[in-house]
Nucleic acid binder design. Structure first.
Length: 343
DNA sequence: ACTAATGATTTAAC
DNA sequence: GTTAAATCATTAGT
């Protein structure tokens, strides 16, 4: 009703009718002295004003009659034009949504995590199976990884079903509103342009809901990542042989236990671990050794013996390669190793 | 269950 | 970038 009143007021400006005229009980009589078109307009306005007081059926019939009136298209376009100029020019300027940077960020992250984007569920399952089959070591983390993938797939599925729900709701709602506006455009000045604008507004609202979904999905993925991909949580001790290799190097370079990049690479290769794991190990070892040399004395002696034995074996093999004598592992006096403490 | 050992991370210094 | 130091989180031995 408010809308109607406003429009009628606007009409008054153009058609020579003032709001007082419309509200005036004598206005019809006044208009009768005017020309035929004005009288028609007056009739229409009267009918419009009266429409809310009538029953639904009467209103329907009247609506139909109005709709078929020969002046209707012209009136409609004029009213639309006025509305456009008055109402929409005030707040309708800052349209055209810029691509929201936040939603782009979320989109990128979801894409990077494999939550959105192309489906690759079969591939991941196959890869996990292949990894499990090929993995010689029981602790190579493929179980962890597949578990992670499963949880990620779950998030992905929820995300997509929610997204679909939102999209469906959005299009349903949009359709509903569009139909409603189209229907109302028979009695109200609603231009197609305005409907378009309304649709854009609805889409913006829904996209903000979508952003919330994306945000919470991102959070879930982050939590999942920290739960599964934080190496601290899936720590496995190195195998005995790797520890031996590392200790051997450490105690045989005790005066300067800082392996070069190349040495680290070689150690990593020998132990089947990464270079940064070697770095971590040496970092931990140095600080822990320094903190309590006494505790490590036994270990130090042990590895000093070991390296001495190895060296002896190597030299024995080199010097008497064709000797049938088996190199014995015992009988060597333990070398008295003194850590120099220059750390 | 408690505790020591241990690999990884964080922080700050260089 | 590396490193020392402190700390975290898990593993393993009791």
């Amino acid at each position: 009703m408010d809308e109607q009143t406003r429009m009628l007021a606007s009409m008054g400006g153009l058609g020579g009718l003032s709001q007082a005229d419309v509200g005036d009980p004598d206005s019809v009589r006044k208009q009768q002295s005017l020309g035929q078109p004005q009288q028609d307009i007056g009739d229409i306005l009267q009918q419009i004003m009266a429409i809310t007081d009538e029953s639904l059926d009467e209103a329907q019939a009247r609506k139909h009659a109005l709709n078929c009136h020969r002046m209707k298209p012209a009136l409609f376009s004029v009213l639309c034009e006025i509305k456009e100029k008055t109402v929409l020019s005030i707040r309708g300027v800052q349209e055209e949504d810029p691509p929201d940077p936040q939603i782009m960020r979320l989109d990128n992250m979801l894409l990077a995590e494999g939550v959105s984007g192309p489906e690759k569920g079969g591939g991941s399952a196959a890869a996990a199976a292949a990894a499990a089959a090929a993995g010689g070591s029981p602790n190579d983390g493929s179980i962890e990884h597949s578990d992670y993938r499963a949880k990620l797939a779950q998030i992905r599925q929820i995300y997509h079903s929610e997204l679909e729900k939102y999209e469906q709701a959005c299009s349903e709602f949009t359709n509903h509103v569009m139909n409603l506006l189209r229907e109302q455009s028979r009695t109200r000045p609603i231009s197609p342009k305005e409907i378009e604008r309304m649709v854009a507004i609805i889409h913006r609202k829904f996209s903000s809901i979508q952003m919330q979904l994306k945000q919470s999905t991102c959070e879930a993925v982050m939590i999942l990542r920290s739960r599964f991909l934080d190496a601290r949580r899936k720590r496995r001790n190195f195998n005995k042989q790797a520890t031996e290799v590392l200790n051997e190097y450490f105690y045989s370079h005790l005066s300067n236990p800082y392996p070069s990049e190349e040495a680290k690479e070689e150690l990593a290769k020998k132990c089947a671990i990464t270079v940064s794991q070697v770095s971590n190990w040496f970092g931990n070892k140095r600080i822990r050794y320094k903190k309590n040399i006494g505790k490590f004395q036994e270990e130090a002696n042990l590895y000093a013996v070991k390296t001495a034995v190895d060296a002896a074996n190597v030299s024995a093999q080199a010097s008497q390669a064709n000797s049938p004598a088996t190199p014995n592992s015992g009988g060597y006096p333990a070398p008295c190793y003194t850590p120099d403490g220059r750390l």
